[in-house]
Amino acid sequence: MTAETEAAEMQPAETQREDLQRYGVPYAAHGEQKVIFPHRDMWLQTAVALLQDGWNMCLDVTAVDYLDKKHPALPSDIPAERFEVVATFISYERKERLRARIQVPEADPTIGSLYTIYPGSDYLEREVYDMFGINFEGHPDLSRILMPENWQGHPLRKDYAVGSIPVQFKNSRQDSPKEGA
């Protein structure tokens, strides 16, 4: 597969990682950090392969909004998109973690839901939906989890303002000087 060879070319210094090669997707490894870069359309198949390969648990699902930033440490053959869903898995036998970074375009922010494969991703995906507005297809109850149900917008997107307001001081002496003072 071309992706494999290209990924191998990308890291000439690193030894070939058989444990990461077998999923047929580009990968990178530095220290204890192991990352694979599955394509969005192949995400669920990759997840099934991960499950069958002994990655017991989906620890974390989150996302990053690279509005106009360069993605750090992204292989050159992967087209960068605005959103990136990041899922972390852990294996008891190997005692290591694996991270998957999936590019999700702004025009169609959808990705398959891990719920049927790793049911523990339920709340995590709801949080990503709430904070980034990324839809997880096949999720049983994709609704807001942290913000109120009628909230507008997705707060962790980079084009969503922090929403800080100037601090107001009530009854401050400056505004209402004492009479006769």
């Binding site: 192949m42 198949q45 398959g112 839901s113 049927t116 494969i117 096949g138």
Partner: peptide, 13 residues
């Protein structure tokens, strides 16, 4: 719901 869109390999899923 079984995911429909992105599954050429639905059986496995």
């Amino acid at each position: 719901q079984t995911p429909e869109k992105q599954s050429p390999n639905t059986q496995q899923i």
